[in-house]
Design a protein around this nucleic acid. Structure first.
Lengths: 237, 237
DNA sequence: TCAAAAACTTCACGCCGTATAGTTTTCGCA
DNA sequence: TGCGAAAACTATACGGCGTGAAGTTTTTGA
């Protein structure tokens, strides 16, 4: 049957155009904010008609969904790379590396951060199934890894003791439990709490709310991080 | 001179119409999300022409800015009321009351929360001067009050020791320092960190990212709160 | 009572997403 | 090599958006 082999010229061109559409969209987002992602602007930039894009994405929201997945993947790559570069036997250093990579990426790609964690684009509604992109879980699994590395020392905060596996998304657990067999439900709760804690200051900063109150958001983040590491029972590292 | 007295019929009608415009906008936001705030829809709802609104707000963004101020004020009222209702001699209870009021308001008014803390509405850019609404500072001052109440016990975390007054916005300090004379710069830093910590989980939840990972976001928030109170050196209360 | 000012409408422009229909290009197979 | 189908793309159109310019109605104070 035609088209079954994945290497036909047509398929290749199609993939290239798809990539160009997404790339142009990301460029526009970088230069004009998420609101600049319009089918017409993308088409204009590419020398096409806006309707031509409908051959690649059924709807503008589908395009945005694809962009979110791509950007989220970039974020996951960035934090995972930073974590891998940290000394494996030092949980505190791993957390610091992860957190600084997270904040650094968010500030350097603030449009992308808004795309992922905010209201992405005028009128966009996430697809119904709610299937968060894989990269979202990669990020969560990464934080679970931080929690797992610190767990021997962090196991006693006690606040998370009454969590059970039923409290968490099966899909998340499907990745977390095999990867970190020693981590109890309380450890997953701890991971999500760490996520929230890091997300809070970073999102306030990305959206400009923090800069209205302090001139040293980096110092503030560092202090929060130090307090986090200490609360996990990890030494100064 | 005409119009100097503030009670003329004309002024009153004008104020009423202004309020009706904002009220209609908030209704639309509640029923159709922030994207439903369009001049044309508001006008339609009020039986006017869209351009008539230009007599009250120079631009759509001006209207949104006014809405943000109003909604932010509602949030500030809510958390201040909850804090006032808590026993004055129990810092931990005050923090819990404040935090639960914050999360409760955010979940009950998620559109408003997005309006305040996210990208409010298609294409909206905050006004240049960056003058955050007064209510924003009211919220921050409120958290500073939480930190101040806990300060005798919380004073020793140490992570915030190298902050100085120069690290913070003068406007914020202008309200915080008179209100809480005993609070050092480290205490203000602590307040902003608490803000970020609470904001993180709540905003993940409001934007739906938390529900993709856990079925018990309320439990998670409670655990985070417990850990926060403990890290401040406050007893179980 | 009357002119000025305020409130409001009408019309227009250029954006946007997208549906429908028509046109051109490309491909696989006989 | 040529042909029919499929894919890629364009043209046109609709309704909705913010907003500017110009005109009309209502209200006001002297």
């Amino acid at each position: 049957m035609a088209g079954t082999r994945g290497t036909g010229r047509r398929e290749r061109l199609r993939a290239e155009t798809t990539a160009e559409i997404k790339g142009t969209a990301l460029e526009l987002m970088g230069s004009g904010g998420p609101d600049a992602i319009t089918l017409r602007a993308i088409a204009r930039e590419m020398g096409m008609t806006a309707n031509a894009i409908y051959g690649y994405f059924a709807t503008r929201d589908d395009l945005v969904t694809a962009l979110i997945a791509d950007v989220y993947t970039a974020l996951a790559d960035a934090v995972e790379a930073a974590w891998s570069a940290a000394p494996a036997d030092d949980p505190a250093a791993g957390i610091r590396a992860w957190a600084h990579a997270f904040r650094g990426w968010a500030l350097a790609n603030s449009e992308g951060f808004r795309l992922i964690y905010g209201d992405p684009v005028p009128g966009y509604r996430a697809p119904e199934g709610g299937a968060a992109p894989d990269a979202a879980q990669r990020v969560c699994v990464g934080i679970a890894g931080l929690a797992a590395a610190a767990w021997p020392q962090a196991g006693s905060p006690g606040a998370d003791d009454d969590f059970t596996w039923a409290d968490f998304d099966p899909g998340l657990l499907g990745k977390v439990r095999p990867a970190f067999p020693g981590l109890p439900p309380a450890g997953v709760a701890l991971a999500l709490r760490i996520w929230g804690r890091l997300h809070g200051l970073v999102s306030l900063e990305v959206y400009g709310h923090l800069r209205a109150q302090t001139t040293s958001p980096d110092r503030l983040f560092g202090a929060e991080l130090a307090q986090l590491v200490r609360s996990l029972g990890l030494a100064a590292g």
